[in-house]
Simulated assay, not measured.
Amino acid sequence: MRPLSHSMLGLLTAIAFTGCAANAPMPHVDHLDLQRYMGAWYVIAAIPSYPERHAYNAVESYALLPDGKIQTTFRFRQGSFDGPLRTMHPVGTVRPGTGQAVWGMQFVWPIKAEYVVAYVNADYGNVIVARSKRDYVWIMARTPGLPEAVYQQLTARVAALGYDTHKLRKVPQQWPEPGP
């Protein structure tokens, strides 16, 4: 067997470290005040999962259950502002030792998707939810829109977390919703 050349060894090392960086643990906020976090969050932009790739008026709402789990309702219009209403009801489970900022989000038993609160501003008015795989990310706010300067700051944070921000899709929001 021939020994690896220095250039081949360097290339393999670079590939290995690149792969590791892509799945490095997602940093999260030190402590998430669950009571303050509960309620409705408008999805401002996302690198969306498959079901939400054509979402309009997307809103994620959280309610703390007596057992400490988080009941989630994700609702959106499919394809347009007057498109069919879609809802999902995953349940979040806080992972111990994470300052309440990392959850397992269960859509289907027994699979729990990683949910990481990577950033929340001081007044709990906007948030970035991310994943270590850096495949999906959500920028959300308590209002259906954000000033452009704030949106750009959040987008820069998303980039710093290791995401390709060219994949971000602004979610169209129009409130109140059009009537039937």
Rank of each mutant, 00 (worst) to 15 (best):
F81K: 09
Q106M: 14
R86L: 07
S132R: 06
Y115W: 08
A160G: 10
V158L: 13
G162T: 03
G99I: 09
A156S: 15
A122C: 02
F76W: 13
D82G: 10
A160S: 15
G99V: 08
V116S: 01
D67F: 11
E114C: 07
G68H: 09
Q106T: 15
G97A: 08
F76T: 01
F81P: 10
A113Q: 13
M88L: 15
V108K: 09
Y136H: 09
V158F: 14
G92T: 02
R142Q: 02
V129S: 02
V91E: 01
K133F: 01
Q152A: 15
P84N: 14
Q153W: 09
I70C: 07
S80E: 13
R157S: 10
Y119E: 10
Y115Q: 03
H89S: 10
E114M: 09
Y115K: 03
M105W: 03
Y119D: 05
A149G: 03
Y163G: 07
G92L: 04
L146A: 08
T143G: 00
H89Q: 14
R75H: 04
T73W: 02
L161H: 13
Q100D: 15
N121D: 15
W138K: 02
V120Y: 11
D123G: 08
E148T: 12
Y136C: 00
T73Y: 00
T143W: 02
G145E: 13
V158E: 14
Q152F: 11
P144C: 05
V150F: 00
G125F: 05
F81G: 08
V108P: 04
Y136M: 00
R95T: 10
F81A: 11
M140Y: 00
Q71A: 14
G97S: 09
V116I: 00
L146Y: 05
R142P: 01
D123L: 04
F81E: 11
P110D: 06
Y119W: 11
I111T: 08
P96S: 13
A118W: 11
M105Y: 03
T98V: 08
V91M: 01
P90A: 05
P90M: 02
A113L: 14
V120P: 09
Q78R: 15
L154K: 12
D135E: 12
M105R: 01
Y151L: 14
Y115E: 00
V102W: 06
D67N: 15
I128A: 04
A130R: 04
G104N: 15
A122F: 06
T98Y: 12
A122G: 00
F74V: 09
I139N: 05
M140F: 01
L161W: 13
G125D: 08
V117K: 09
T87W: 04
W109F: 12
K69D: 13
V116P: 02
I128V: 15
